[in-house]
Amino acid sequence: MLDLLFETEWSPYLAGAGIGILLWCSFLFSNKPLGCSTAFSRTSGMIESIFCPDKVKNKEYYKMFVPEIEWQWMMVFGIILGACISSVLSGSFQISFVPQTFQAAFGDNILLRFLMALVGGIMMGLGARWSWGCTSGHGISGMSQLSLASLVAVMGFFVAGIGTAMILYSW
């Protein structure tokens, strides 16, 4: 049983079931769905308030999502730690700049990879807040609650995601 902690990769069914159980815990103990993108909004607001605190205070959006460290922020911070612990235990932790698949298709240009990731990240940040959720908020929490908005958003994530990846990699 303990060996499982040191394995590099689990069956996706087991990993998924574990995430499902975490969803029970977050609803039961914290009265919250699992979601990640609001934490990025709050962090963005926190960084902006270092430079112009008054402007941030007056923004309508930050009145709804106050830029502060709260449950979800700690959760996203926990994801970094949890993935780090998992990869260190299995010996797969590695500082890497360009993923293999990307390298095979576009070469090992770090700047190109960072730029594509940056542009993708900007679109994703916009889209996540635009649809009020991300792959965990809509994909796992929302779908589990049978939310209509989440079903539509998840279809959008994958339709546009598959289309974009197919176009990129057909070059």
Binding site: A117, G127, A128, A160
Partner: peptide
């Protein structure tokens, strides 16, 4: 619209 924007980002970012 939000879902599609997210998806384009998803494909670029991975």
């Amino acid at each position: 619209i939000g879902g599609l924007l997210f998806g384009i980002g998803f494909g670029l970012l991975g």
